[in-house]
């Protein structure tokens, strides 16, 4: 079976390098499944999980603030942050979630704060979802 070379890079360094038969990401325009031989593509990603499928194994990564670059044999994910489930700090994510929820309840009027809290909440939920599975 053909495989794709996948790499996940963040400003703090590469997070993951490997091979996958299927890469599944949630782009802004919807879910994208990428198989080997895909045409070159660039798409921004939502704060969500990225899946690398290899036979029966599925590897999940929590990604936020990034985009995916696809080439026929290679998929690169450039993100502001990306974490393997084992690297996620559950306590911290839970605390961040609570903080964000509080802020959302309080700061309904202030637009900037509201948007930031919303994003923080999304990131926290994404991380917790991943570790929960």
């Amino acid at each position: 079976m053909n495989t794709l070379k996948v790499s996940v890079v963040t400003p703090d360094g590469p997070v993951y390098e490997g091979e996958a038969e299927l890469v599944s990401v949630k782009a802004k325009s919807g879910e994208l499944g990428i198989l080997p031989g895909h045409i070159p593509l660039v798409a921004p990603l939502t704060i969500n999980a990225v899946r690398f499928k290899n036979g029966a194994d599925t590897l999940l990564l929590a990604v936020s603030g990034g985009f995916v670059e696809v080439r026929p044999k290679q998929v690169t994910i450039l993100a502001e942050s990306a974490e393997l489930p084992s690297d996620i700090d559950v306590e911290r994510a839970r605390a961040a979630k609570e903080r964000a929820e509080q802020r959302l309840n309080q700061a309904k009027q202030d637009n900037v704060d509201f948007r930031r809290a919303e994003l923080a909440l999304k990131r926290a939920i994404n991380r917790l979802d991943l570790t929960g599975k």
């Binding site: 593509l41 660039v42 921004p44 670059e69």
Partner: peptide, 11 residues
């Protein structure tokens, strides 16, 4: 040369 999803401007 890439395809852009959804559009070049948004990327």
């Amino acid at each position: 040369s890439y395809e852009y999803e959804p559009s070049e401007e948004e990327i």
